[in-house]
């Protein structure tokens, strides 16, 4: 095993993207959706999440450490690829490039988003409806958030597809094809959830 870590890191990267990061993302988007029921509903849900027992433990081990590893190792993976869609314009090759591109966009978006919300909360700001409403009051920021959400959801949905291949769940071309449809439905569905939620703040 020693000096032979690449396999382990790659598999860990694939696993962490789904469990826990992907699950957290889904949960986060669902909680945000409370905003469509008005500021009160959102504030109740947000304060419920913020007051979960063992909050710091959960944040560190369910969100930040897995996210950090996934992001840093993912950057390494993205920059070791030599993209060649101009020569090989196949569907899966496009998805390969988009996965790397959305990964980088997502990293920029999430870093900004964490700075604006969680870090500000650590400095004493209160995370509530008003905080997000103030952010997306600026149409440029709203556009940035929509791009960020769609990019994150795409990266998750398409990542779910490659997770299934990387762990040997979908082996046959047929199962991989069907799973392409399944993950694209997940992409569209979660995008609608995410965009409707952010528009509820605007």
């Amino acid at each position: 095993m020693a000096g032979n870590r690449e396999f382990f890191y790659r598999r860990l990267h694939s696993l962490l993207g789904v469990i826990p990061v992907g699950i957290f993302l889904t949960q986060h988007l669902v909680v945000n959706y409370f905003a469509t029921r008005g500021p009160e509903a959102f504030n109740r849900a947000a304060s419920f999440m913020a007051n979960l027992p063992f909050r710091y433990f959960l944040e560190i081990f369910i969100i930040f450490l897995p996210l950090l590893f996934h992001a840093i190792y993912g950057l390494y993976i993205a920059f070791t690829a030599q993209n060649n869609v101009s020569r090989y314009g196949y569907f899966r090759n496009w998805m390969f490039v988009l996965q790397r591109l959305t990964g980088i966009v997502t990293l920029i978006f999430v870093t900004w988003h964490v700075w604006e919300t969680r870090v500000q909360a650590a400095f004493g700001a209160e995370v509530n409806y008003e905080m997000v409403a103030n952010i997306v009051d600026n149409p440029l920021m709203l556009a940035f958030y929509i791009v960020g959400i769609v990019s994150t959801v795409f990266h998750f949905a398409n990542g779910l597809w490659s997770f299934c291949v990387s762990w040997g769940l979908t082996v046959t071309p047929r199962s991989q094809q069907i799973f392409t449809y399944v993950t694209m439905v997940i992409f569209v569905a979660l995008s609608i959830v995410g965009i409707r939620a952010i528009l509820a703040f605007a």
Binding site: R5, E6, A81, Y90, R92, V165
Partner: peptide, 19 residues
């Protein structure tokens, strides 16, 4: 193939099977 530079480095672009 579970060592460095092995199986896990596949990024599923699937150009190989097309080519």
């Amino acid at each position: 193939i579970m060592g460095d530079g092995g199986l896990a480095n596949c990024g599923n672009s699937q150009n190989c099977v097309q080519s």
